[in-house]
Design a protein around this nucleic acid. Structure first.
Lengths: 150, 150
DNA sequence: GTCAAACCATTTGATGTCGAACGATTGAAG
DNA sequence: CTTCAATCGTTCGACATCAAATGGTTTGAC
């Protein structure tokens, strides 16, 4: 595993770290996905339901920011969730630019069914690492992710 | 940053680590992407060109495996690269099921233009971490990613 | 109060992504 | 040789994703 690129030590180290980071994220996602898919949801749809479940009703631009997606994308994902009756849109009275998105009872029931197993699956994944290693990984990822601006 | 979920220590730790890992991967990708896009390429297209550049001509199923994508997906990405003249398909003589994909001179020129700056950008990203931290991150990611089976 | 700038959701067009179904080809078993 | 299973690339339908353009809404400056 690792890059085939010939360069300075710093370059090779950075490239290898980068590749392993991406692979790890992709692998874990790929292993978590089938469980979500078995409930007929995509990861994006699950992300929306989970956010609404834990944070309460949100506007679409808040969802977009939370999930790191474009506003156009959120519009479509909400469309598909709404068609299936898991969420509802309501135009805000005070600021009619905003559309607040609510879980329906059916949506709440669904996410309440899915979420515990999701946590269990993540715990299983993370058992590859000791608690100390998990904290180290989290800290290093945070350092890398927070690096704003270019 | 972190989950709002109330659960056991193990659950909260696993969830936090998971979220930070995903955020880090997404953030780094989001910062690397504009450079690639400025050359008119998507990340998938770049991935294909880079693989062909460093590994030589490959069959589509080899590309699919390398890039962790479905075969149907690779077909489309190659279609789009071929339309723009960066790669060429050739049916294998010995095994006519296989389609080998080649870089054209134009494709080779393009990836040779892009790649050095890509390495530089990754090095910049990784400068958020010390060399030792990078190696630790790489090791932990590898442990997490390699966890096969369910 | 008017107007411009900022904000919000939607639409559109291009690309990516998957899983499933399909047709062609190969390899192996009998 | 024949047949059957496996492999490979393509196609299709559904959904995701972005950037850019659009139209409605609000806010702030004057």
């Amino acid at each position: 595993m690792g890059t085939h690129y010939k360069g300075t030590d710093e370059e090779v180290r950075a490239l290898n770290t980068y590749i392993k980071l991406m692979r790890a994220a992709e692998s874990v996602t790929a292993r978590l996905n089938p469980r979500i898919a078995s409930y007929g949801l995509t990861l994006s749809q699950f992300g929306v339901l989970e956010a609404l479940y834990h944070l309460g009703p949100l506007c679409q631009h808040e969802l977009a920011k939370k999930l790191l997606k474009s506003s156009g994308n959120i519009t479509l994902v909400i469309d598909n969730l709404e068609k299936r009756g898991f969420v509802r849109r309501r135009r805000e009275r005070t600021d009619r630019r905003l559309v607040r998105v609510y879980l329906t009872p059916g949506g709440r029931r669904l996410i309440r069914d899915i979420f515990p197993g999701h946590v269990t699956a993540i715990v299983q994944e993370m058992r590859a690492l000791t608690p100390r290693e998990q904290e180290t990984l989290g800290r290093l990822c945070q350092k890398l992710g927070l690096r704003q601006r270019k």
